[in-house]
């Protein structure tokens, strides 16, 4: 039988990444949807870079930044007392940046789609900006919230290039399912590779199907 560890690592990585991305993505998307500043196109372009760059390019730069000699890696090691590259923390950090556009884009579109009238009505009813966002705006964009989370999660599950560059393939630490499959194929163990691949395939399909089903229902209301 196969080792469940890589699957567990994949889920843990994707879950953590998604949670962190909600925390970063919601304020970022809200600010972008509100802002009319001149630097906005620049910010949006930087944010969308992970969509077009080859993962190996991103992974290469991450590796440089995360390594002991890199500015981020050095600072990290001083604070947390362990190396950032080739650690699970490094994978999470890389994934967060790599999947950022997949979270922010749907959320930004969602914020833009909520009529401004609704927020203004809420303000004039004495509600603060924060209360308005929580009680009026976010409930009106449930399908965007769902889409952002699922895309970020699914994209992290499907990550390969970046993980390979900054995580390597350390058993129980950075060897996620997609890397495990690559290793198994390299060592010609097609049967185990098949099992991992089939599990990922079924899992991804189920998630996407669920999203489309739920979104359809959200849209109807």
């Amino acid at each position: 039988m196969i080792n469940p560890e890589p699957l567990y690592l994949t889920l843990k990585l994707a879950g953590l990444t998604t949670v962190i991305l909600y925390a970063i993505g919601l304020p970022a998307a809200w600010l972008l949807s509100q802002s009319r500043m001149r630097l906005k196109p620049l910010l949006e372009a930087v944010l969308a870079l992970p969509l077009v760059l080859p993962p190996s390019v991103l992974g290469f730069y991450f590796l440089l930044a995360f390594s002991r000699q890199g500015w981020l890696g050095a600072a990290w090691e001083r604070i947390f007392d362990h190396q950032l590259a080739f650690s699970f923390d490094g994978l999470v950090l890389g994934s967060v940046i790599f999947s950022l556009p997949f979270m922010v884009h749907p959320l930004q579109a969602g914020f833009n789609a909520v009529p401004r009238n609704l927020s203004e009505a809420s303000y004039s009813l004495g509600k603060s900006k924060l209360e308005t966002i929580i009680k009026v705006v976010l409930p009106s964009m449930k399908s965007s919230l769902l889409t952002g989370g699922v895309l970020a999660f699914a994209h992290t599950v499907g990550e390969f290039g970046v993980v390979l560059m900054i995580g390597g393939s350390i058993e129980g630490k950075t060897k996620v399912a997609s890397i495990a499959i690559y290793d198994l194929v390299e060592s010609l163990d097609y049967q185990s590779a098949h099992i991992y691949a089939a599990i990922l395939f079924a899992f991804s399909f189920t998630i996407l199907l669920t999203v489309y089903l739920v979104n359809k229902r959200l849209d109807i209301r």
Binding site: A121, S122, S124, S140
Partner: peptide
């Protein structure tokens, strides 16, 4: 706007859906 006690009615109602 929060401190001004106004009742605002819009052309397109702006009810919370």
């Amino acid at each position: 706007p929060q401190k001004r006690k106004v009742g605002l009615v819009f052309q397109d109602y702006a009810l919370f859906p």
